[in-house]
Design a protein around this nucleic acid. Structure first.
Lengths: 122, 122
DNA sequence: GTCATCAGTTACCAATGGTTACCGTCGAAT
DNA sequence: ATTCGACGGTAACCATTGGTAACTGATGAC
């Protein structure tokens, strides 16, 4: 079985790719890699994420079973987010991706510069 | 050096993640894995992509040096898209990701069902 | 002439993602 | 007694992106 089924627009594999492709999911997983965090801890650890968007991301990940959300009945409230085994298993492929990103970043930026320069010349 | 720099909103690693996270980039790479294709060939191989969006995706990938675009001065026109070495090097991490997706899909779908059922119950 | 082919572009619309402000609860401080 | 601040959000609004449908331009075939 190839992964060509990902080409089918209705294939559920797309669904997973969409989740991975989500701008913040990868960052959240990175943030929670070392242990559970509270909402605001996640928020400050990831730069520049709006609370609404973070909530959406966390809820979606909870729905997909990537993390658990535990509410402690306290005041002020305390909500802990923790990766599940499933969520943790995602760290390996993601690490590959970020490694690739870091090692090829200069190439990409150089390519962009060349492309944009060629455009300006026209 | 950790990959924590991805947490910096201005870090260029984000840029790469955004590209990977793009809905169609992964599919295009998969389509071109076996050799160069023409515009419409890519289009038909990937289900459900609008020409405008495909153009945008291909241009962005060209800019990043992931593929080359060669125009043959013919009528009807012929444009070939081919992965560069850089683009090909991305297939490995992507394969890991799709493998993960396929092997954990049932877990995810089950988790979603449970989550949605719990919501409906309320 | 008219039509078909290919690789797009243009104008337009819907959905998604993101930003800024605000809320409710309760203990502590004034 | 009352304001203050922490925390984990929500509400209303706006921007960007994704998507659709129709059209273009060159040319050889019919």
């Amino acid at each position: 079985m190839d992964r060509g089924n990902a080409f089918d627009p209705d294939c559920p594999t797309r669904v997973v790719l969409d989740r991975i492709g989500d701008k913040w999911t990868v960052l959240v997983i990175g943030a929670l890699e070392d242990g559970p965090l509270r909402f605001t801890e996640v928020r400050t650890r990831i730069g520049g994420v709006a609370p609404k968007v973070l909530t959406q991301t966390l809820r979606a990940m909870e729905r997909d079973g990537l993390l658990t959300r535990t509410v402690h009945a306290q005041v002020p409230p305390r909500v802990d987010y923790e990766l599940t085994a499933l969520g943790t298993s995602l760290t390996a492929p993601i690490a590959m991706l970020t490694d690739w990103a870091e090692s090829h970043l200069t190439q990409i930026l150089a390519s962009r510069e060349g492309y944009d320069a060629a455009l300006d010349a026209r």
